[in-house]
Amino acid sequence: MTANQTNGERTAVIIEDDLDIRQLLVEVLEQGGFETHSAGNGLDGIELVRRHDPIVTTLDVSMPGIDGFEAARRIRAFSGTYLIMLTALGEEADTLIGLQSGADDYLVKPFRPRELRARIDAMLRRRERERESADATPAAVVTAEASDDSAALGAPVTAAPAEASAPPAPEPLVSAPAVPGPAAPEDEATAPAAPAADGHDGWYEHRGLRLQPEMHLASLDGEQLELTRSEFELLRLLMDSGRRVRSKADLALSLRGESYVTSYYVSDADKRAIEVHLANLRRKLGESATQPNWIETVRGVGYRMTAED
Rank of each mutant, 00 (worst) to 15 (best):
L124H: 06
G202P: 07
D201E: 13
R50W: 05
Y82S: 04
R10W: 10
G199P: 08
R207H: 13
F232S: 13
S254H: 06
T190V: 12
A136Q: 12
D17K: 00
Q224G: 03
I15F: 01
D121F: 10
L19F: 10
D94I: 04
L116Q: 00
V108M: 11
A193Y: 04
D17G: 04
T137C: 05
Y82T: 01
A279G: 12
P213C: 02
E47I: 02
L281T: 00
R117L: 14
E233V: 07
T190E: 09
Q212P: 03
L220Q: 03
P177E: 05
A189P: 05
R244T: 11
A122Y: 01
M215N: 08
Q212H: 15
R272K: 13
R114G: 05
F111A: 02
A12D: 06
A197L: 11
D187E: 14
H200G: 01
P54F: 10
A140F: 08
T306E: 10
A269V: 15
E132F: 09
R272W: 00
P113I: 05
V141F: 06
E47C: 03
L25F: 01
P172S: 03
A151Q: 07
G65Q: 08
N7D: 13
L153R: 08
G68K: 02
L116I: 10
Y264Q: 15
S62H: 10
S79L: 12
L255W: 01
L253I: 07
R117K: 14
Y265M: 05
A151S: 15
M63L: 13
V28I: 13
E275Q: 14
S175N: 06
S38T: 14
K271N: 06
L227D: 06
D121W: 06
D104N: 14
G32C: 10
P156Y: 12
L48V: 13
P185F: 10
I46A: 03
P54I: 11
L227A: 10
E205T: 15
L238W: 00
P161L: 12
R51F: 05
G222C: 11
E35W: 07
S38L: 02
S150L: 04
P195C: 06
T143G: 15
G222L: 09
P195K: 06
R76C: 00
R10C: 13
A159N: 08
A152D: 05
K109V: 11
P292C: 13
H206W: 02
L124A: 07
R246P: 09
E233C: 08
A289R: 15
L234V: 09
E47F: 02
E226A: 14
T11W: 09
A279R: 13
G40F: 03
G68P: 01
S259W: 01
F232H: 10
L124F: 10
V61T: 04
Q291T: 14
W203R: 11
A103V: 10
D268Q: 14
L29Y: 00
V174P: 01
A178L: 14
